[in-house]
Amino acid sequence: MTATTTPEATFGVLPRADGSARYSHAGYTVTGSVNGPIEAQRREEHAYEAHVDVVVRPAAGHGGTRERHLESVLQSSLAQIILVKSFPRSLIQIVLQVENSPENDYVNTKLVQASLNFGIMPALMQTAVLALLSAGVPMRATATGTAVAIMHQDGAKQTMVDPSPRDIEKARSVHVLAFTSQDELLLAESEGDFTVKEWDLVYETARGICCRSRPQAKEGMAMLLDDESTGGPDMRQFLRSTMESKVAADLHWK
């Protein structure tokens, strides 16, 4: 594992956006901004719901087919948790700029890569959720995601959370799972070679990280504070504590 093992998040890093957040975990740093609900372009306008637009910008170069794929995955997931029905004919724009991503020293780095990028998906998801919270966009639930790899070492199977690019290359299979705050499986992307049993194991691991049950009782600000997820062990607790400290700072003047 590279860089931080505990996730870190900052809110309001971009003063002119409606909401923004910077999130870093497992070597990835992503800054996200959210604007919305704003006026939608004619062709994106939907009569009954808001259009969620996700733009992913890589750390270097222009976005290619890989970023289009990441955008479509995030778009379909985030449109599920945002209350899009409350804002018909409008647009919620989420821009995610990758600032830093861990390198794999074993291969030649290419600017344009076409293959799926599993490592970065949880970081993008987390940043988007944090930025949406920061912008105060009404949501049904928050979401937390994590990446899990199954490694075969010395004939034994091992699950590895937040694998580095080198681990992903060596792994037998790589999985990204995201859960909503109601413990529902929101997103499941897997690649490699695995069986149903192995997937079950991954599911358990990911669930343990994303949906650890909270001992505290729900409070008044349940909607906002309820489910916050982060990148490492116990994502939900991270999201919650980050949001709590943000709210505490905002209400300091009282």
Partner: peptide, 13 residues
């Protein structure tokens, strides 16, 4: 044995 090579599920719960 049935080996799963890829799984993609998105857009709902």
């Amino acid at each position: 044995e049935t080996r799963i090579k890829s799984l993609e599920k998105q857009g709902g719960t």
